[in-house]
Nucleic acid binder design. Structure first.
Length: 746
RNA sequence: GCGCCCGUAGCUCAAUUGGCUAGAGCGUCGGGCUUCGAACCCGAAGGUUGCAGGUUCGAGCCCUGCCGGGCGUACCA
């Protein structure tokens, strides 16, 4: 599993020509797909559309033909305005512009032509759109046929040119367990890789383990000095938790060491700092107090009014008077809070002094930090003793993290270790230098001039290689990216990394583009928002994190408690199993239901909530559906998909379900287009909701509108059972793409 | 300071990439279990899409300027 040596790997130049870009999605590709699709239904009326997409293309071609055009360029389908007016719509605003025509006139002409087409049963022209209803038998055969043919690969784009994709996600550190931030990354990345694969591409999943650097040395030193002999075997802890605890222990001991020093030999140094910086400290503290005062006032509805840009001159006197009053109150407030003022100044002074002195302390006084630095040097020098300890502790952590991946149900095809790749890239930087893309500073550092973003802004000098020849972050990423390219010749690569690293990836992609022209545009940063903790509600101190395993335990236990409450007779083991599934579904769906840019405010209560737009809701809809199928089976009814079912009996809600089933490929395509699995999460909920609504719908008399097992008419019952098979397949498929496992019973 | 992202219902978020009447969940109020699973369904109230201009047949989406928030701006990773 450990990555192979990369020695000599970077010698394969010159790099081969890049492959033609296999686009995420482009108009050219769409046009090519239209050309390829067998859509000339009007020429060959007996030909059946092989899938929903072909049906849409058939409609577009018919519309184009009605307007005297031989291809549907410039037209595309969208959702009908409502289910009452049709299944699909076409808007004519764009075409009207190029034709210098009235959109409504075009829509009317198309509506008239479509009326006479047996494939369509209704056409309504309104507001420059035509809303069309598709003949039910045709709709049924196209969609049911597509699912029957595609099976487990339902959702792919048959017109797609498959390409090689790499998706990198998770990126754990070996000094601590996974936390809630890793959880979003890992769930998002795994779902993304599934969605790209489902679209039809060849995907390789990558993980990158940050297993080297000063952080892991701290855990090692803590073990050495304060916990000698500890191991997962002796303490019974999960390896990642043990090492994480040692890392915290190091921080605690280092703080103690500093406090001791500050109270003794360092006291004079701190006092001196306080004396020299007194004025600045008092200003800083006072500013904070003023901010506090203004916040208090604002809550009471008062604030500084002086904003000349927004004021009319005649308002000036009034606003100035208001502000003056506020200032007077501030003076009084300060006097009333004299103790606070003194305390704030003391606290601010101490904070600054410690920050200022701590750096010197760490570098010159601290024994702990000295040992850590020494061990890092020995690690880099391949000291066998240090390497052995490092390897042992990394293995503890990785074994622990692997367990977390297993319970999450995520996996990788390749794992890179930074300890293997961190030296790669030096030669690439030298190559950039040779080719004139980078230059050398007086101290030997090699820098790249990243052009300024704003007009007139000076270019930023980015260091690619330090003066002493050592690598920085970008060096190793450049090396591993090139290594992956030479190995896989990928068409596209996706890095799932938080948005705070956008600049880094811009630089990385600009650099790789200099080495392999055109490659930069095929590298993507799936940049997602932060996971915020609700500070108010949870009293989470700064730096405190929610650790993944414990969090998952909490959610799964809460889900299990609900299962137990609902079905008391269930064996404990089954309660636990369902709790796991439901809890995981809740967490995963919560992390995927927002678009990627959105910051997720991780309210544990909200993630725990099983009602509303949640994972458990989706699981429930599917479990309910499966319950019907089970009972139908037991009653002796055929429940397999019947392509020849009489679709003319489809109720409106059922045609709607059928249409939604058919839109899974579009949701997947949108997910790939935006590099955001959120579209699939949105799809699942929409389908589940539609199913629940259909299920409970009743007529004026209060009787169920859509009985299945109790349906008196065998043909309708068969059709409904078939439809449920389709919905089941679509729900199962979409949830699986999100990495959410389903249940037969809840 | 500069750059990127964001600002939509009380709260949390969508909006088919510039198109039909801006939609969901939570919360609030009201209704629905003697028939296939109520972790459900139906209905109601709730919007000057931060503000001001501009482009367009058409703007939540594009442009400009403000206001407010987040992130970044390392020879850290």
């Amino acid at each position: 599993m450990r990555g192979r040596s990369i020695a000599g790997q970077a010698n394969g130049r010159p790099w081969p020509e890049p492959q033609p870009a296999a686009g995420v999605s482009s108009s050219a590709e769409a046009a090519a797909a239209i050309d390829r699709a067998p859509t000339r239904l009007d020429d060959r009326p007996t030909m059946e559309p092989e899938n929903f997409r072909a049906l849409e293309q058939g409609l577009l071609t018919a519309a184009a033909a009605a307007l005297g055009r031989n291809d549907p360029a410039g037209l595309r389908t969208s959702d009908a305005q409502s289910a009452e007016v049709g299944d699909l719509a076409i808007g004519f605003h764009g075409l009207a512009k190029t034709l210098r025509a009235d959109p409504q006139a075009l829509a009317t002409r198309v509506a008239e032509a479509v009326q006479g087409d047996a494939r369509f049963t209704d056409a309504l022209a309104q507001n420059g759109y035509v809303n069309v209803r598709i003949a039910r038998p045709l709709l049924w055969r196209a969609i049911a046929g597509e699912l029957a043919r595609e099976g487990a690969s339902f959702g792919r784009d048959p017109a797609l040119q498959p390409a090689k994709w790499l998706v990198e996600y998770s990126g754990p550190n070996t000094n601590k367990p996974l936390h809630i931030g890793h959880l979003r990354n890992t769930i998002l990345g795994f779902a993304m890789s599934n969605v790209v694969r489902a679209h039809g591409h060849d995907v390789t999943r990558y993980n990158i383990v940050n297993d080297r650097g000063i952080h892991i040395c701290k855990s090692m030193v803590a073990l050495d000095r304060f916990a000698a002999g500890s191991s997962p075997e002796t303490t019974g802890e999960k390896g990642d938790h043990l090492v994480g605890r040692l890392y915290s222990l190091f921080a605690k001991k280092a703080t103690e060491e500093f406090a001791q020093w500050a109270a003794g030999p360092g006291a004079a140094e701190i006092e001196q700092y306080l004396a020299t910086n007194r004025a600045s400290i008092e200003t800083g503290a006072d500013l904070q107090l003023r901010k506090r005062f203004l916040q208090e006032q604002e809550q009471a509805g008062r604030k500084l009014e002086w904003k000349p840009a927004k004021m009319k001159p005649q308002q000036y006197p009034e606003k100035m008077a208001a502000d003056a009053a506020l200032e007077r109150d501030y003076g009084a407030w300060l006097q009333a809070h004299a103790d606070d003022v003194a305390a704030a100044r003391r606290a601010e002074g101490l904070k600054r002094a410690q920050a200022a002195v701590a750096r010197r302390f760490e570098a010159e006084v601290s024994q702990l930090h000295a040992q850590t630095r020494d061990w890092l040097r020995r690690w880099e020098a391949n000291d066998p003793e240090i390497r052995a300890l490092w390897r042992r502790m990394n293995d503890w952590v990785l074994a622990g993290i692997e367990k977390t991946y297993q319970r999450l149900g995520v996996s990788f095809d390749h794992v890179d270790y930074e300890s293997d790749v961190y030296l790669a890239g030096k030669e690439l930087v030298l190559e950039l230098l040779q080719k004139g893309h980078a230059r050398k500073l007086a101290d030997g550092a090699i820098v790249f001039e990243q052009p300024g973003k704003a007009a007139g802004e000076a270019p930023q000098e980015k260091v690619l290689l330090r003066g002493d020849g050592t690598s920085v972050y970008i060096t190793q990423d450049l090396g591993s990216l090139m290594r992956r390219y030479t190995r896989h010749r990928f068409a596209e690569v996706v890095y799932v990394v938080g948005s705070e690293q956008e600049l880094h990836f811009e630089l990385l992609f600009a650099l790789i583009d200099r080495l392999v022209p055109g490659l930069g545009a095929r590298c993507h940063h799936l940049s997602y928002g932060m996971v915020e903790l609700p500070h108010g509600k949870m009293k989470s101190r700064e730096g405190e994190i929610i650790e993944a395993d414990g969090f998952l335990d909490t959610v799964e236990a809460a889900a299990a408690a609900q299962v137990r409450a609902r079905s008391a007779e269930l064996p404990a083991e089954e309660v636990r199993r369902r709790g796991e599934r439901i809890g995981l579904a809740a967490v995963k769906y919560h992390l995927l239901k927002f678009s990627k840019r959105s910051t997720v405010k991780f309210d544990v209560d909200e993630a725990l909530d099983m009602n509303g737009r949640t994972g458990p809701y989706c699981l429930y809809a599917l479990a309910r559906l499966r319950s019907i199928l089970r009972k139908a089976d037991a009653a002796g009814f055929a429940t397999q998909l019947d392509l020849a079912a009489d679709a003319s009996r489809l109720a409106p809600a059922e045609a709607g379900l059928l249409l939604t089933v058919a839109k899974l490929p579009a949701a997947i395509a949108a997910g790939v287009r935006d590099l955001d699995p959120y579209h699939v999460a949105d799809y699942v909920y929409g389908l589940a909701k539609q199913l629940n609504s259909w299920y409970t719908a009743s007529g004026e008399d209060g009787k169920p509108l859509h009985p299945v097992i109790n349906c008196a008419d065998p043909a309708t019952r068969g059709l409904r059972l078939s439809l449920l098979r389709l919905v089941e397949a679509a729900l199962e498929r979409a949830l699986t793409l999100l990495g959410i496992g389903t249940l037969d019973e809840m």
